[in-house]
Simulated assay, not measured.
Amino acid sequence: MKDILKTGLILFIISAVAAFALAMTNEVTKDKIAEQRQMANELAKKEVLAAASSFEDVTGDELATIVAKFAPVVEVYKGLDDGGNIVGYVFKSTPNGFGGSVEVVTGIDSEGTLSGVRIGNHNETPGLGAKATDPSFYEQYAGMSTDTPIGVAKSNPTETDIQAITGATISSRGVTSGVNASIDAFYSINGN
């Protein structure tokens, strides 16, 4: 009986020390992690709307209305040139893919053309749905018109379709649903 208590006490002490060490590591690194996420967010915005020199958050009631009406859109940014003129919008959406939520950043210029798409955090299957982060997939969206919803084709895509990732049609449809929600939000902002 003494051996069981001794072993249990030793395991408890080891677990407590490990938990404390993890908590301290988290405390020390949380600001750096938040800074890295912010930098990645800024880079993604610049990549999808290169014409913008700065971005302004859409907030308050306007954002609340967009988020409520155009789920899975969760964030909206106005892209501004050096003179403060709007050159387009960037939308962050979190549609569902095969492995759960996929972060999709979509840029739409003021002419209504998709200027770019990037994929952020996701839990898609490595080697399949995770290929959404490959330029060969997300670059298909650049330059597409927003006049009609974008479709997903397993083969022979038209000018309004993207080619699905082989073996990951659900992931491809998830990303595309985020892009289409962003397009709808764009037209709502512009009064169409």
Rank of each mutant, 00 (worst) to 15 (best):
P95H: 00
K2M: 09
A185E: 03
F55N: 01
S155C: 08
I10Y: 13
A40I: 09
R118S: 13
S93D: 08
G97S: 07
V90H: 08
T59N: 01
A19N: 07
I66N: 07
G100Y: 02
D31Y: 10
M144C: 11
I170D: 01
E124M: 00
S93A: 13
E139P: 01
T25E: 10
E42D: 15
V105Y: 11
N180S: 05
K154S: 14
G8D: 01
D31V: 04
H122A: 09
E56Q: 15
N26R: 10
I150S: 02
F70H: 12
I13T: 13
S155W: 01
G143H: 14
F98V: 10
A23V: 03
Q163M: 14
G97L: 06
V90S: 05
G84L: 11
G174T: 09
D61Q: 13
D109H: 07
V74Q: 12
F186L: 07
V152S: 09
G84M: 10
Y187Q: 00
E47P: 02
I119S: 05
S15I: 09
L128N: 00
R173V: 11
L9N: 01
V58N: 00
R118I: 06
F186V: 04
E139M: 12
S177I: 06
L63I: 09
P135W: 15
G127S: 12
D184M: 09
D109N: 15
G97P: 02
Y187M: 01
L5E: 03
K32D: 11
F70M: 02
D161A: 02
G167V: 03
V87T: 14
T169W: 10
K154F: 07
V28Y: 01
T176N: 02
D81F: 11
V67D: 06
K131E: 13
Q163N: 11
D81G: 04
N41M: 13
L43W: 13
A185C: 01
I119H: 06
G97W: 02
V105R: 06
Q36M: 05
K92T: 15
T160F: 10
T158A: 00
A51G: 10
E159I: 11
F70Y: 12
P95G: 06
A64I: 02
T25K: 01
L22H: 08
R118T: 15
A23M: 12
S177W: 01
G127R: 09
E103P: 07
S188M: 03
K2E: 13
R118C: 00
A181L: 05
V117P: 00
G79N: 08
S115G: 12
T7H: 08
V17N: 04
S136W: 13
V67F: 01
N85Q: 15
N121D: 14
K2Y: 10
T133Y: 07
P72T: 09
K2S: 10
A40Y: 06
F91A: 06
V74A: 06
F186P: 05
Q36C: 08
L5Q: 10
T125G: 03
G107D: 02
D61V: 08
I189A: 04
K2V: 11
L43P: 05
N26V: 01
Q36I: 12
Y141I: 08
A50T: 14
K45R: 15
S177R: 05
S115L: 01
S155G: 06
A153T: 07
M144L: 14
A21F: 13
L80K: 15
T160H: 13
D161I: 08
S136D: 14
F91I: 05
T166F: 08
S110K: 15
S177N: 12
M1I: 04
E42T: 13
